[in-house]
Structures are given as C-alpha cells and as structure tokens.
Simulated assay, not measured.
Amino acid sequence: MAENNLQEILKPFYHRASEAETRLERLEAAIASEKNSGNEELLKKVGELQSKLDDVKAEQASEREKVQKELQQLNTENAKLQYRITHLVRALKDTDSQLQSK
C-alpha cells in the first residue's frame, strides 16, 4: 500500500522524465539525419534537454527520499498508536472484569 502511494506521488516525475527523453531522442535523430549548419543549434538544444532531464531525475530522487522518510515516520507513529491501543484495550478489559467481580 505504501509502495503504491510512493509510485502515485512519483508518477508525474516519471512522466516528465519520459517526455524529456522522447524530445531528446527526436533531437538526436534530427541531428543524425541533418548534417547541415543547424547542427550547432540542435546540439545546444540537446544539451539543454539533457540538462533538464538530469535536473528532473535529481528532483525525482529528492522527492522519493522525502516520501520514504515521511512513510517511515508514519509507520513509526502507527506502531506507537497500535501499542497504545493494545494497552488501553487491556486496561479496559481489566477494569470491566474488576467491576463485574464486585
């Protein structure tokens, strides 16, 4: 369940990275087919897209790390609350049995 949440949170980043890779592939194909004077401009665009792709990947890794930390904190808090519930239920049962025995 937590893995699904993580995947849903990261889905937009995967989508953006995929789009950037597609654009990069198209530009690389254009460079390979056109060896004209426009190569420098295309190379510049390819470099910019590669830079953007690297930025998106770094952002994605950062978001994944944040989500994992938050998930770990939530799991820890959940375990604490379950522990408290267990002891509260036990105390309630003890109190009920003491009241019934009187």
Rank of each mutant, 00 (worst) to 15 (best):
Q60G: 08
V89I: 12
Q73H: 11
D96Q: 14
E28A: 05
A58F: 01
K57L: 12
D96Y: 10
K45G: 00
L49C: 03
Q50R: 11
Q82V: 00
L27R: 08
V67T: 11
D55T: 04
S62T: 11
K69T: 05
I9E: 12
S97R: 14
L43N: 08
E41C: 00
E34D: 14
E21S: 09
E70R: 10
L49Q: 06
A58H: 02
E40A: 11
K44G: 07
G38A: 12
N36Y: 03
V67Y: 10
Q82E: 10
L53W: 01
A91C: 01
Q72V: 09
I9L: 14
R16Y: 07
E8D: 11
L6W: 01
D55V: 00
V56N: 01
K35W: 12
Y83N: 13
K57P: 01
T95D: 08
L92V: 08
Q98L: 14
L71Q: 09
L24A: 03
I31Q: 08
N5I: 11
H87I: 12
N78S: 11
K44V: 10
E41L: 06
L81R: 02
M1W: 07
E41F: 02
R90Q: 13
L92A: 15
L6D: 02
E8G: 01
E63S: 07
L71G: 01
K69E: 02
A2W: 05
S62F: 11
S37R: 12
N78G: 09
K35C: 05
A20M: 12
